[in-house]
Amino acid sequence: MDRQTISALAHGDHPIAAPLSDASVARLLERALPRAAGRLLDLGCGSGEWLLRALDGRPGLRADGVDLAAASLESARAAAERDGTGDRLTLHHQDATKFTASHAYDLVLSVGAAHAFGGLLPTLRAARGHLAPGGSVLVGDGFWEREPDRATLDAGFAADEFADLATTVDRVVADGWLPVYGHVSTLEEWDDYEWSWTGTLTRWALDHPDDPGHDDALKAANAHREAWLRGYRGTLGFVTLVLRRAADA
């Protein structure tokens, strides 16, 4: 079973692929989209959950999503048709780092996809290339809540992969951005996300004992749970920022 399929199954009960509650997602979108109109771009949109929630209740908003996972895009397309927003959503099956458009966007969103761009600052540089004057970026990425110990590093992280929260924000500001809102995921949000990820995948495997992917799904769920509980729980944080360009940047 490939990683995209495992991820799609694991996010079945928590479609926002980040440690954020529904209330936090709604609040971030309200701050990032103060008007119910404009254009939105999600770089690395997955199943399009951010796009679907943004389009709901904003009839003047049009959105584009970009991702390499064809199955996830099909899921997003089907959900938009069910919601009645399919005519305002355009999905692009391609590498988000190579996406181009003929128009700029009022909001560029990329949450939990910084790895595709090589880190947070490269993600912001990519977003800036799509941003209309006065527009905003909504970006989410990890940071170290505390110095990573050996258990965290053994879970698959590098010590220099992230910085602490203050340093992370300092780097963003030094790059010409100003935070106009932010949210630090709570331990409760993290636990709900991780229990959902591992639990949903485990349940799928138990419910499909004869599926060829049964063993791979259980192995992935067990490995993820071990890395979380014995590795990065309480060490890896997640911050989501609403940013605008500094006037002189």
Rank of each mutant, 00 (worst) to 15 (best):
R31G: 06
G135L: 04
L243K: 06
D170L: 14
L73F: 10
D160Q: 03
L120F: 13
Y232V: 12
T123W: 09
D216P: 12
A174T: 11
A69Y: 11
T200Q: 08
A116H: 15
G231M: 13
V169Q: 02
S136Q: 06
A78Q: 10
P15Q: 01
R146F: 09
W197Y: 10
L107V: 05
R203D: 08
Y193C: 04
W50Y: 01
R27K: 06
G57V: 11
L29R: 06
G237K: 00
L29N: 10
A155M: 07
L20M: 03
H214C: 15
F143P: 13
Q94G: 13
V111S: 01
Q4N: 15
Y105D: 00
W144Q: 02
A151M: 12
L241P: 02
F162S: 02
T186Y: 03
S7L: 15
D215Q: 14
G84L: 10
L120G: 05
S196G: 03
G60C: 00
A101E: 08
A205V: 11
A114T: 14
T240P: 05
T202H: 15
L236T: 05
A54Y: 07
R128S: 04
H115C: 07
R82A: 13
R244Y: 15
L28W: 09
L20S: 14
G135N: 03
V139R: 05
S185D: 00
G142Y: 10
L20P: 05
A114M: 14
E30H: 10
H115D: 09
E194Q: 12
E188F: 03
W177T: 12
A127R: 13
T235Y: 06
A101S: 11
K219W: 07
M1D: 04
V242M: 04
T123A: 01
R39L: 05
D248S: 14
D170K: 00
R53P: 05
R31H: 02
H183I: 01
S102F: 14
P212I: 13
H208D: 00
S7K: 13
L43Y: 09
G234L: 01
W177D: 02
P122F: 06
A18Q: 08
L201Y: 03
W177N: 04
T5E: 10
